[in-house]
Design a binder for these strands. Sequence first.
DNA 1: CGAATGCTTGACGGTACTCAAAGATTGTGG
DNA 2: CCACAATCTTTGAGTACCGTCAAGCATTCG
Lengths: 255, 255
Amino acid sequence: MKREDNPLKSPPRCAHPCDDCGLRNNSAFLKSTAEELDAIESFRVGSRSVPAGRSLIEEHIRSPQLFTLYSGWAFRYKTLTDGRRQILNFLLPGDFIGLQDEFAEGNTHGVEAATDVTFCVFERDKLWTLFQRQPKLGYDITWLAAREEKMLDDHLVTAGRRNASERIAMLLMHLYRRAERIGMVEDGWVEFPFNQQHIADALGLSLVHTNKTLRRLQRLGLHKIDDGKLRILEPQALETLGDYFERPLRRVPLI
Amino acid sequence: MKREDNPLKSPPRCAHPCDDCGLRNNSAFLKSTAEELDAIESFRVGSRSVPAGRSLIEEHIRSPQLFTLYSGWAFRYKTLTDGRRQILNFLLPGDFIGLQDEFAEGNTHGVEAATDVTFCVFERDKLWTLFQRQPKLGYDITWLAAREEKMLDDHLVTAGRRNASERIAMLLMHLYRRAERIGMVEDGWVEFPFNQQHIADALGLSLVHTNKTLRRLQRLGLHKIDDGKLRILEPQALETLGDYFERPLRRVPLI
DNA sequence: CGAATGCTTGACGGTACTCAAAGATTGTGG
DNA sequence: CCACAATCTTTGAGTACCGTCAAGCATTCG
């Protein structure tokens, strides 16, 4: 008998085997075969939790492990030596974490929990074995990497070529759509555990200017952020302003 | 008897089989086994050339093919609907191109040749077959994707958190180091087929401001750009200014 | 030699940054 | 339960970095 808990709503636990994984019932993800689940199971070495504000991966230290986020919000970031921080992207349940430093010596990203998070842990050294045993899962991982690169492309366009209000419009729609896709929206509200410094660091803006721009869009009635939750009031207006239209989202593989 | 031409120096031609590939003699790349070469060979459907300034991949059109750049410089970019362009990254021989739109409907990047380029063409539909037949090559492709994502991370930090001179310092060092790695530096000079508009679009700056900043760094004696070639005069100064230190570069797989 | 492309420079303006300080909210300990 | 600290948000003032506009110059090419 499966427990089928939903990590998005109930307190997460992931001690159970992958074929009983609450996230896998989510319609945003592709189904895996029994053999694939088996391979994932032996790739996985356990699960961990980290409270909001703490690190999953310390910057500049190559983690010997890979993760799949199971519940909560996190983000990847890098900092310059004088402390300026850039958030690279935001992580939601199902996101596969850590592939980027497959080869880097130092100079790696950090990953921080924005809410309390739970995640599955995989041994990096077993990655190659996984590719051998189940090429399909290797293909899936590549697919996930390509998808994340695509998101980075969009963020780079944002940071490079959009002005402040366009940036904010783009980010809000992006995050909302992604959360919506995996069923994290309830009554039009999404959990939004980011403060204005996070938004500023993601968009390459200063805190003050972020505040003023955010406030202006909210006064215009385009969105609302309240009590750690986000609501989109005028999706079309925000999409047009940000010149950002989320393409139809396919089902995504889950490792 | 192998021809062993060097695509970096002599006029490129790639009608010959992969085990006779000029690029594979380059010490920047990992050696492949005979079986791998065989698999790559059957994955490949031919080679093509495109003159400077023309497209390898049209923006917004999902290419049914994947490429490996064989000779020359190219770049990936995206444009907003009002024409603002952002260059996402630069492509050198050995770079694998097109994985990013593995799933995107429209909304894809464009790829343009900066010099005359030659590249190998692969059938996207055969990618999965390749993973099955040679998981190692699948692993390599993932590796390449992760590496490119890492470069995007760095560019995002640049666009988001560095000022104009820091951006330029970072970009010049980045491009120089990458070109150097595959032996494209001769007497301290690298082919540099980019105009100031390219640099501006890569860094998220205006043309005018790019010009003034570039000029200032050149007057300071940090670098020289002349006749389509770049020379780094003060690598340390540029690295410090850009807060960007290229990590030791490993050998890279070549598909 | 005129057109096209790219580089350079100056003038001016605005978007976004910095500095500063005052609310608002939350958490903590006495 | 209140006081105080800590964190985050908000607002104002002044500034600067960078963008836009405009025009001149250099080089290439047909």
